Amino acid sequence: MRNHKRTALLGAICAAALLTSASARAEEIVVSNYGVSANGMPFAVAMEKGFFKEEGANVTGILSSAGGGTTLRNMLAGNAPYAEVNPNAVIAAVQQGADIKFISDNVLTVAEFVWAVKPDSPIKSVKDLKGKKMGYTNPRSTSQALATLVLQSGGLKTEDVELVKTGGFGEGVAALDIGLVDVAPVPEPLWAKYKDKYRAIAKASDMLPPIANVLGAASGAAAATKGEFIKGVIRARRRAVAYMQEHPDEAGDIVAKVYNLDPAVARAAVKSLVDSKTNGVEYWGPGQFHMDGLKRAIEVQKMVGAISGDVDAHTLVDTQFLPDDLKALK
């Protein structure tokens, strides 16, 4: 009897250890600029609403990172099965031999961007930027590439302005405030916070076509071993996007907590982006690939030297983890 009790006790201890181990193995995912930029907001909603667990993906944490290269390093170093990242970082890594694929097309436009000036500025449109100082975050960044496109939309070239590196979007707002630049890119949710203080002279949703902004990515190793988890993440994010469309105020309140924003600011940012349509294309997509947007993103990044050489967008895409109704390429 004593041996039976000891065996039962050992069995219980082993079971508890296995449960603890399984809990410890519950996965984290990596999202570029999570808690700062608008792209990652659906993940905050999915976490708060319990969508990940309901879809079979035990996401225990969302790691943030300041940019695509850092996101990929965090994904690979921590064996994270899923990362949301800008396309140029993945393409550059693939060109260097990394086994990584795009597995979902998450943010389909750059509608979160406006270019703002002080209210009393004589600059009324892009055409008035000639000879002025235009802020951007860092060399080879999305903001540098978009600055080029915005200038082109007004009939100008990059040589017609002085491009000034500010190091970040918040730093760009500060530079605008003290006169180091004449115009700065201000993305959501910063724009919702500062729109009463500055004046927009250009909006990406009005001036630029749909451009792939961030995409879901996975390594070959994760694709081979953690496919069901990845599918669950994509389904949960899709549900979060639908929830944000149906309940923008409630979603804004969730975002406010995670992003440390005033609820009114978060609500305004969510509603602005939910309502946004660029040539009929929404900002947050459910995951289905829009190949024209991805191809534009590649060309845009080539313009600033972030990507070089020939790139076949179709070879970068793996649709196996998408729900069946989203597998077809648009």
Score class of each variant (00 low, 15 high):
Arg6Pro: 02
Ser37Trp: 13
Phe43His: 14
Ala46Asn: 03
Glu48Cys: 05
Lys49Cys: 07
Lys49Met: 15
Gly50Thr: 09
Gly56Lys: 06
Ser65Lys: 04
Ser65Ala: 15
Met75Pro: 12
Ala83Ser: 13
Glu84Phe: 14
Val85Met: 07
Ala92Gln: 11
Asp99Leu: 09
Ile100Phe: 09
Val117Pro: 02
Val117Asn: 02
Pro122Leu: 03
Gly135Lys: 06
Arg140Asp: 10
Leu146Ile: 12
Leu146Arg: 05
Val150Asp: 01
Val150Ser: 01
Gln152Met: 04
Lys157Phe: 09
Glu159Pro: 01
Lys165Pro: 14
Lys165Phe: 03
Thr166Ser: 13
Phe169Trp: 11
Val173Cys: 08
Val173Lys: 07
Ile178Gln: 08
Gly179Lys: 09
Gly179Leu: 07
Gly179Tyr: 06
Trp191Gly: 08
Ala192Ile: 04
Lys193Val: 05
Lys197Trp: 09
Lys197Phe: 11
Lys197Gly: 07
Arg199His: 04
Ala202Met: 12
Asp206Trp: 10
Met207Glu: 13
Pro209Thr: 08
Ile230Leu: 11
Ile234His: 10
Arg235Phe: 00
Arg235Asp: 01
Arg237Cys: 12
Gln245Asn: 13
Ala251Asn: 03
Gly252Met: 00
Gly252Asn: 02
Ile254Met: 01
Val258Ser: 01
Asn260Lys: 14
Ala264Phe: 06
Ala268Asn: 12
Ser272Glu: 00
Val274Trp: 09
Ser276Thr: 02
Ser276Met: 02
Asn279Lys: 14
Trp284Glu: 02
Gly285Ser: 12
Gln288Gly: 11
Phe289Val: 07
Asp292Phe: 06
Asp292Asn: 13
Gly293Ile: 12
Lys295Ile: 13
Ile298Leu: 01
Glu299Met: 12
Thr315Leu: 14
Lys327Glu: 00
Ala328Tyr: 00
Lys330Phe: 11
